[in-house]
Design a protein around this nucleic acid. Structure first.
Length: 483
RNA sequence: GGGCCCUUCGUCUAUCGGUUAGGACGCCAGAUUUUCAAUCUGGAAAGACGGGUUCGACUCCCGUAGGGCCCA
């Protein structure tokens, strides 16, 4: 263990797709651990699979991490570029007799597997070139370099999350380090890179737990002390199976586009497999202070959108209004909507305190704000149209009269005025508020009508009421005003 | 098939041998109310199963079942 060294962790995705939710959580845990210890959080792009690695995926991963607010230290390391260094380490092991050339052909390997299978043994390389002289090598065959793994005893991983995990060494065969074309294998590259990057703690999904044993052996053979391992359980879909496309496993940018706030996502992901007593709302600063590997659970957690929604609603309500306006503008821009002019942006800002109270996502926020973006004459939805009976329109005409001389145009003053009108008229507030809502928003659901009136402003508000009040034709469900 | 890991309300979790098994999301009911929310109050809801160890197990051990990961 390198307890004397500054904490250095890494996130090492393969750029074969977007930053999915499991990767995002792994990155978050690494980031929190680094920030907690005032250490470094590095990025390594494991792009050795040339066929599947893409520039687009690399960009998506960077973008996803930036969106989540997980800033990394130093320039990212690209693994493929370090292949020569990896080969050098394999050759060093070869020179020291800790690795050997293996000339077994693909057919031989296949034969080994089928025989093992037939005999009910686990399919493993049988070590046939382990102690054989290279002079026996068949001509014309480029050898691979295999690791001379210990055959007796056991390898114990003292995992920070899983506790001690023991592997019998005879279960682990002599893995390939360098392929016959001279390219390093994943197992070699990871160990060399983690060592060269001075990684002190490897926090990754527990799908790598078995790899840890072989990697630990490699560390020892190379004369390096292994880092501390922390294998965190994978995230599962709602049905308990591994999270996959089938569950709609999406990239970080998809969650952004669905209207989630990065701080809500961080809070949600943190609580998947990690807890601090009964605390649920844990802002990032607090998370950094509290985070520890010991508190990570060992059982896989299921991804649950309902809880994310709840957290997101909380963070939206807490968010600064100006920021939310900017978020809505960004969302609309991504969707291809024209930018908001000054007046609309101002209306949106005025409505924001009320709007943000009633939504779970930014997409819902945008929808809740649609009354602001509507252009007169409003398109009424069927329920709103049904509310606007001739009688209701008559009421609206009188409300218009009451409001047009209002000295002040703010929610409190408008409410007082309308309540006076309602009281004098002997009606319930609802009998006036609902038609008013239909006229102002074109829907039966909106923020409180006084907030709506205030946000719309005097001219637009009165005009919308007037549009409906002066309408002569019957307003059947199909008679809503059309553009 | 082999190795390894996991198992508390529907979901995320607290509990680190002694609790009426707590909280959150979701759900149901009520309060509030101009709609929808928000908020408040109340409610239903859990230790997979079987053995041990112990005065006492959700908690420790073994087994079974179920799920997952890796290898092929």
């Amino acid at each position: 263990m390198k307890s004397d060294m500054p904490v250095t962790v890494r996130f090492a995705p393969s750029p074969t797709g977007f930053l999915h939710i499991g990767g995002a959580r792994t990155a978050l845990f690494n980031w929190l651990f680094a920030r907690h210890h005032h250490g470094r959080f590095l990025l390594r792009i494991e792009d050795t699979d040339r066929a599947r690695s893409t520039e687009a995926a690399i960009a998506a991963i960077f973008e996803g991490l930036r969106w989540l607010g997980l800033d990394w230290d130093d320039e990212p390391v690209f693994q493929f570029a370090r292949a020569a260094r990896h080969a050098e380490c394999a050759n060093a092991l070869l020179a020291q007799g800790k690795a050997y050339h293996c000339y077994a052909s693909a057919e031989e390997l296949q034969e080994m597997r089928t025989r093992a299978r037939a005999e009910g043994r686990p399919p493993r390389y049988d070590g046939r070139w382990r102690d054989r002289d290279s002079r026996d090598a068949p001509p014309g065959i480029a050898p691979v370099i295999r690791f001379k793994a210990p055959q007796q005893g056991e390898t114990i991983i003292e995992d920070a999350v899983q506790g001690p995990v023991r592997f019998a060494n005879d279960q682990l065969d002599d893995m390939v380090l360098l392929r016959s074309d001279g390219t390093p294998t994943y197992m070699l590259s990871v160990v060399v890179d983690d060592h060269d990057m001075a990684i002190t703690h490897i926090i990754r999904g527990d799908d790598h737990l078995t790899n840890a044993a072989r990697q630990a052996q490699l560390y020892h053979a190379l004369g390096w002390s292994p880092p501390r391992f922390a294998h965190i359980p994978l995230i599962h879909g709602p049905d308990g199976a591994k999270l996959s496309k089938r569950h709609g496993a999406l990239g970080a940018e998809a969650y952004r586009d669905m209207g989630y706030l990065p701080e809500a996502m961080r809070n949600y992901l943190l609580r998947l497999g990690w807890a601090h007593g009964d605390d649920e709302i844990i802002p990032t600063e607090q998370a950094i202070e509290w985070f520890s590997l010991e508190a990570i659970g060992r059982s896989p957690a299921r991804f649950d959108l309902a809880k994310l929604n709840s957290l997101n609603g909380h963070y939206i309500r807490e968010a600064d209004d100006a920021r939310l306006v900017a978020e809505i503008e960004a969302l609309r821009a991504r969707r291809g909507d024209p930018p908001l002019d000054l007046a609309l942006r101002e209306r949106l800002a005025k409505a924001m305190p009320s709007l943000k109270q009633r939504v779970k996502t930014l997409v819902e926020l945008d929808d809740m704000a649609s009354f602001i973006f509507q252009v007169r004459p409003l398109v009424l939805d069927p329920k709103a149209a049904a509310l606007l009976t001739p009688e209701a329109r008559g009421v609206l005409a009188r409300v218009h009269g009451v409001l047009e001389h209002a000295p002040e145009w703010n929610a409190e003053a408008l409410e007082a005025r309308i309540r006076d009108f309602v009281a004098a008229d002997g009606r319930s507030l609802g009998a006036v508020a609902q038609p008013l809502r239909a006229a102002l928003a074109g829907r039966t659901v909106s923020p409180p009508i006084f907030d709506v009136l205030y946000a719309l402003g005097r001219d637009e508000g009165l005009a919308r009421i007037s549009d409906i009040a002066t309408m002569s034709a019957d307003l059947g469900p199909d008679a809503a005003p059309q553009h």
